[in-house]
């Protein structure tokens, strides 16, 4: 009897997204050959025309659900996948396209398309986890390539991924960055945002834009109080919490609170 060693098969899928997260896997140039040895890339149209049929041990899903067709497709992906990992803000929180959730989609399509009657789209952009069971969600807009390689390694090796859920501030302090809100008065969402990007914006003296969504102990209300003390208006607060992760609960609650205040024309937001 002969035994063969096989590596886990991996498929990479795209839903409503910009492809940036998938590209970060290809951008992991130094690690890519090792990744290819540790797993079998069985389906990855962005990278290769060679495609194996499923089922797959691990599916990596980019993008959010924005059309009726995508709802059916993600169910199929779930059925043919052992583990399902979502990558990026679209797949995990609906992405920038979830701004439609706060607007009238028909109005949007009438602006964008010459013949909007041909557009078959949903009212909302929703995360993958609203439709199927997700085994792990990797945050970021885009995801960090080292975190992506870590998640793939972890699933290939059958262990838990080492992905921190604390704030961006931890990465700033470990890197020796000077705190931009304290030393420059620059508004920064780092305190409410999950680490993972390596504090890339504060490293270049910019505030954090919360691409990685809320950290595990976020205090978005307290953060807003401080940002308004630095001079931000209720409209700016609404926008600050309504970017790549606009539908995740703590950001959504805070953006709605400021939107209500703005609409009421009040200077003060409700407690």
């Amino acid at each position: 009897m002969t035994t063969t060693t096989t590596t886990p098969t991996v498929a990479v899928w795209k839903f409503a997204s910009c492809d940036g997260c998938q590209l970060n896997l290809l951008n992991a140039e130094d690690e890519l050959l090792d990744v290819a040895k540790a797993v079998t890339i069985a389906y990855f149209p962005e990278a290769t025309r060679a495609m194996q049929d499923g089922p797959y041990d691990v599916s990596i899903v980019e993008g959010s659900i924005t059309t009726p067709e995508e709802i059916e497709r993600i169910k199929h992906v779930r059925e043919i996948s052992g583990k399902l990992i979502t990558i990026g803000a679209c797949a995990t929180h609906g992405g920038i396209q979830a701004l439609r959730n706060y607007a009238d989609v028909e109005e949007y399509t009438s602006y964008v398309y010459a013949s909007p009657e041909f557009i078959d789209t949903l009212e909302t952009s929703t995360p993958i986890s609203e439709h199927v069971h997700v085994d792990f969600e990797l945050r970021g807009c885009p995801v960090d390539k080292y975190q992506l390689v870590e998640v793939i390694s972890a699933f290939a090796q059958g262990r838990r991924p080492r992905i921190p859920t604390y704030s961006v501030c931890v990465e700033c302090k470990r890197a020796g960055n000077i705190c931009v809100p304290v030393a420059q008065g620059t508004p920064c969402l780092g305190p409410v945002t999950q680490a993972g990007c390596g504090a890339i914006c504060p490293s270049f003296n910019r505030g954090c834009y919360a691409c990685f969504g809320p950290q595990d102990s976020q205090n978005c209300h307290g953060m807003a109080d401080r940002l308004m003390a630095l001079g931000m208006t209720t409209e700016e607060m609404t926008r600050a919490y309504r970017t790549f992760n606009a539908t995740c609960e703590p950001f959504q609650a805070e953006s709605l609170r400021h939107e209500r205040a703005r609409k009421a024309g009040a200077e003060e937001v409700e407690a």
Partner: peptide, 24 residues
């Protein structure tokens, strides 16, 4: 904000975590 900044700038705070990594 549970951001951890006070502890990370404190000159006496000494708490650490260990992280294990394995190559591919």
């Amino acid at each position: 904000l549970a951001c951890t900044n006070c502890t990370l700038v404190c000159p006496t705070c000494f708490c650490t975590s260990v992280e294990d990594t394995t190559d591919l």
